[in-house]
Amino acid sequence: MIVSQQKPLEEILGYLDGEDRIFILGCNGCAEASGSGGPAQVAEMQSILEENGKNVIGSMVIDFLCQKALVKSRLRPRTEQVGAADSILIMTCGLGVQAVAASVNKICHPACDTVNIGGSRGEWKGKERCLECGECLLEYTGGICPLTACTKGLINGACGGASNGKCELDPERDCGWELIYERLKQKNQLDKLKILIPPKDYSKMMPSPKMMSTSLWALEQIDQEEKIE
């Protein structure tokens, strides 16, 4: 289970600035359980964007967005719609956004922040990794997580350590920032590299008490109280 919460609306609208045709993607997995990107939130987002003058040309909820093969097979029948969009707004965890950004050559905006649940989060076989930092930066990095793809977790660009595109740590490991560069270049978004990212707010990494009282967390609590005898 990965817990995510929606970013503030102003932040999302800021990402969509200058774009008109938006395709929205939600996820029937953890994002639905977190109340951040299930069918209900996708529908709600659609009307909010329309109220804000955007043209939502399509939306879809897939289970699960973190699986690239599934993303591709579900989106294939909608290729025309997706192709006509200026960008995709992705309402799910950091893994899902990265998986979509790696599968579709479109600008991909994260609509959620992934927060840390401070414990085991199961096994994930895909290449994407999310540190659950609570302040998702995928908007600026072409949908590749700088905190996990870069060995040092640098967020304002590469260190000087790479050789032939490999990280200074290990010649087997790609330099995350060179991957980010190539991805942004492919999506015609190299300008994003010039944006100065302020120091991260690590206090956002943990979920707020308010969030912990939402549906699934609350259910867990009840589950602990009432034991089946």
């Binding site: 590469a158 050789s163 060179e178 560069y181 190299l190 100065l196």
Partner: peptide
């Protein structure tokens, strides 16, 4: 600050230059 002027990939050179500009800006 520091900068690496000689690089082996296009990505590395561009990343170095963009970061250099960011460093100057701050």
């Amino acid at each position: 600050a520091v900068v690496t002027p000689e690089t082996d990939t296009e990505a590395k050179l561009e990343l170095q230059l963009i970061k250099m500009e960011k460093k100057i800006a701050v």
